[in-house]
Design a binder for these strands. Structure first.
Lengths: 249, 249
DNA sequence: GAAATTCCCGCACAAAAACGCAGAAACCAG
DNA sequence: CTGGTTTCTGCGTTTTTGTGCGGGAATTTC
């Protein structure tokens, strides 16, 4: 096998699988590992692959995992925030959980909106406070330093006393079979209370969290009214959810 | 699995769920915990994640800040804060109001102090949250945007349920004849409740505020146990207050 | 405070890479 | 065809890198 031919084959494999191992290549092509290594080195110098210890990776690999903008998935979250804002009208009582998607929602609220926002999330509250026209109700209790949100029975009791028009939940994992799941027990308790105290429950989830599962269950899909992602509502990824009777934006 | 590949996976998980546990990662990827820890360390050095005990956090969520600039009379307040800290011992329940002097107190708390701090002031809460060993209880209710503190009957009721060991009040105006006075009706209600719920009441006031009066009365000097200023306790300015039976630090 | 985790450090070992070298093949004039 | 040159490949040795393990320190948690 010619050198050029071999390199073309390697490149093909890299582009196909996003990664190659020098060890497996040398058995496939039946050449020594040194040769493979030299080939990979040349391809790396030409910028066609990324050489790493043990093999090589394709460039698309990096693009998938390392987004170009600094904050991960920010654009997706902005899209979600805009869709969510469309659901809020003047005079509403809005209950929100914590999380970065909610934070993005808080930052994107139009200045002329007049509504009352209720939350126990400190970062979210800070954003709401900067808004000129919204009333902010803070849910008090012990603060979980980890999630920067108030947790505990007092907070839950307080939420249960309320009846909000709409509730926005930042979602860590959603799955057609297991519903909404999360990984922090206290936060889950809080989210459950929020669901129970709202006329309408809206889940905000970026596409990557769809069809993922976490250890603790928050609720089934039947308790949710609306799912918002950055995808188009007729995206095939969302089909299981529309089939389950969920409205999707 | 290649090292780069593994790190990309970890990064993906961090950005997806805002946090990862090294313990769960090492079972997922089936490598030793040391390897995970080394990966997290590298990613942390590159600024891609924030390494914490037990795992790592996403960078996007940790950007809660409060500007340190523009705080009035900072040095005096540092002196006051140091004096006040001398009154706090391990295990105490401490009730605090808002204001920049309280904020300085919050920032100056020694790291090994273990106590429970209760407040409705958002800036103060943010500082308490950064402290490693203190429990933070947040008083919830409607937020007053200009004083950045929760106000209202719920907050007052919650304070009245408590019995704190000590209460620190940021003081806007103190006068031998009129006692403590302030200019925000709702904040005054809150301070009154705090005074009623504490075994010991401490006023923190910079010298400029001594012998000044504001429209609304909080309490008389007889309800206060201690006055802390940046001045020496035997300063002539403070004589009227020692004469009135107040301990001065 | 005590028990349980987690972290940190050094070490050992294996896998992979780098390096130098030599033989084989290809290429190229004369 | 032939001797010289270049290119390519494989082999052994030395370095480097990556990983796991053990023990003691540090941190968390109850």
């Amino acid at each position: 096998m010619l050198k050029k031919e071999r390199q073309a084959y390697i490149l093909h494999q890299v582009n196909l699988h996003n990664k190659v191992l020098s060890s497996s290549l040398c058995t496939e092509i039946k050449v020594s590992e040194d040769t493979i290594r030299r080939d990979l080195q040349e391809l790396a110098e030409e910028g066609k692959v990324i050489k790493v210890h043990g093999g090589a990776l394709s460039h698309s690999f990096n693009e998938v995992y390392y987004p170009t903008n600094g904050v991960y998935s920010l654009n997706q979250k902005k899209i979600i925030a805009q869709k969510a804002i469309g659901l809020i009208t003047n005079g509403m009582f809005v209950l929100t959980s914590g999380g970065t998607t909610i934070l993005e929602l808080a930052r994107s609220l139009p200045p002329q909106l007049r509504a009352t926002f209720i939350s126990g999330s400190i970062p979210a509250i800070l954003e709401y406070m900067n808004h000129p026209n919204i009333e902010v109700i803070l849910i008090g209790d012990k603060i979980s330093k980890n999630s920067k949100i108030t947790v505990g029975s007092e907070a839950i009791a307080k939420i249960q006393q309320m009846k909000a028009d709409i509730c926005f939940l930042g979602t860590n994992a959603i799955d057609a079979k297991h519903g909404i799941t999360d990984n922090d027990w206290e936060v889950v308790q809080l989210k459950k209370a929020m669901i129970g105290s709202s006329k309408k429950v809206v889940c905000l989830a970026i596409a990557e969290k769809i069809n993922t599962v976490q250890p603790i269950k928050v609720c089934g899909l039947d308790e949710i009214d609306l799912l918002i992602t950055e995808l188009s509502p007729d995206d095939s990824l969302l089909k299981p959810y529309t089939d389950a009777g969920l409205r999707v934006l």
